[in-house]
Design a protein around this nucleic acid. Structure first.
Length: 430
RNA sequence: GGGGGGUUGGCCGAGUGGUUGAAGGCAACGGUCUUGAAAACCGUAGUAGGGCAACCUACCGGGGGUUCGAAUCCCUCACCCCUCGCCA
């Protein structure tokens, strides 16, 4: 959400943002509604003033005057009752439109219509050189007896997954390593529930618009979040923090649920795109200072990159173009990790800066040095998402015999083991 | 799941249906005093919207209602606390 005053004063910038981001919004309608609302409010307030003044006279009035004053009050109340629903309807309408107003992209963001126009910033790490035809992760898991796709599909349908044996330990090791690592970099560990109220999605900016991506709990008005960003963003909702309490930086681990409506048929095989997964999310609330926030953007981006380097995975950093970045975002970089079997990079991380757009929706404010209440700025980035990260991890570290080399950084979380699995392939003769 | 008690300004806490936007205290800010600080004393001070000023309006967990008038009465929802039961 943007400041209504800002929208009034900068309609051109807002209009431009809706266009380059491909947001459907009638800004003219919003501005018209705003003007009407102000006029209507002034009418109602004038009547309220009169009603209040009149009500104050009643107790002091003489018995003769009293009935007249009360009658006048009744008339005013009657008239107000007619206008108030109108006022409320207007307010609701305006709010609905306001919730759809996109944030203004940072000047550095390339204009583009969708992910095909994202810009690669750099590539890091060496692509693996295999002396044998590498297997894809599904093949590796099956040969090692680490998965059971048919059975789990019978139990939980498509886009479910099941890990077995050492793959379980590997998944847990990756999550634990990420938590430890981020804690070491100063983030506060958090373990949150994915079960949240619908308002939290409005706060994060996923609603309105993303309703069909979210699972609802029957009979309860709770829903399942697709990322810890949702609960953590609402953690301080409506509070008035002290300036010194910021920045707040969390490494939040939670389950994540996504209905994947609209991606039917895409990535149905394997661990890339599943309905339920586990994720460590970096979430930061800073002062309302773009320079400070952008420093944090660099920090959480670097954290994610350092994690991938520690996992010895090649990746590239991509800057998302306007059409691919989401309404609330000022700046967004994706990190994509190399997947040998597909011979391409796949998104494993997404780093975003939202200015005060999210905080404004959530009511996340703090008192600055001057004593003024201001909205905080928020950022988030993936820390690690499992099982998706297991795809590049297994594939990049597979060895000729089908075993998996464990990167140095993960060994402490796997009892010191440097290889997982048993030989399941003929090794080529030298 | 049953029963009981709560939710007031940054925090604590009072509040009889009628100048209560809300006593009092703490914290905060400005000032006096002091070499400096503390203490003491005086003063300022909620949030949001509208008038680009005096000022007006709304807000005492959310929503609805009663009333000329609601923080105060009624309904409803949410949350918190206590208690009994159940349960991992």
């Amino acid at each position: 959400m943007l400041d209504l005053k800002f929208i009034r004063e900068n309609p051109g910038a807002v209009q431009h943002a809706t266009e380059v981001k491909g947001v459907k919004l009638d800004l003219g309608e919003l501005l018209r509604l705003d003007r009407e609302l102000v006029a209507l409010k002034q009418r109602v307030e004038a009547m309220q003033t009169e009603r209040n003044a009149n009500a104050k006279l009643v107790p002091k009035a003489t018995p003769e005057d009293r009935p007249h004053l009360i009658q006048k009050g009744k008339d005013l109340a009657e008239e107000l009752r007619g206008l108030e629903p109108q006022l409320r309807a207007h307010e609701d309408q305006l709010r609905q439109l306001l919730l759809r107003v996109p944030n203004i992209p940072h000047p550095s963001v390339p204009v583009g219509k969708d992910d095909t126009e994202n810009v690669e910033l750099r590539r890091e790490g060496q692509l693996p050189q295999f002396s044998f035809p590498p297997l894809d992760h599904v093949e590796l898991l099956e040969r090692q007896g680490w998965a059971d796709p048919e059975r789990v599909a019978r139990v939980s349908g498509s886009r479910s997954y099941l890990l077995k044996g050492d793959a379980v330990l590997l998944e847990m090791a990756v999550l634990m390593f990420a938590m430890d690592f981020l804690r070491g970099r100063g983030l506060t560990p958090l373990s949150t529930t994915a079960l949240v109220r619908p308002e939290t999605f409005v706060g994060s900016g996923h609603f309105p618009g993303g309703e069909d991506q979210v699972y609802k709990i029957e009979g309860d008005e709770l829903m399942l979040a697709g990322t810890a960003e949702v609960p953590v963003n609402s953690l301080y909702a409506g509070e008035q923090l002290q300036g010194e309490q910021l920045p707040l930086a969390f490494a939040a681990i939670s389950a994540a649920f996504r209905s994947e409506a609209g991606s039917a048929g895409r990535d149905v095989r394997g661990l890339i795109r599943v309905h339920e997964f586990r994720k460590v999310e970096q979430y930061v609330m800073t002062h309302a200072d773009e320079a400070e926030a952008l420093r944090w953007f660099g920090v959480i981006l670097e954290n994610a990159e350092a994690l991938l380097r520690a996992l010895e995975l090649p990746y590239r950093v991509v800057q998302n173009c306007t059409g691919d970045m989401g309404a609330g975002k000022v700046l967004m970089y994706d990190i994509e990790t190399w997947v040998p079997s597909e011979n391409l990079y796949r998104e494993t991380h997404s780093c975003s800066y939202l200015g005060d757009w999210q905080a404004r929706r959530t009511g996340l404010r703090y008192r600055d040095e001057a004593g003024k209440l201001v909205y905080a700025h928020t950022l988030n980035n993936t820390g690690i998402a499992a099982p998706r990260i297991l795809v590049p991890l297994l594939e990049n570290h597979q060895q000729a015999d089908g075993t998996i080399r464990v990167p140095q950084a993960l060994r402490p979380y796997l009892g010191g083991r440097d290889v997982l699995g048993v030989p399941v392939r003929e090794t080529a003769e030298a």
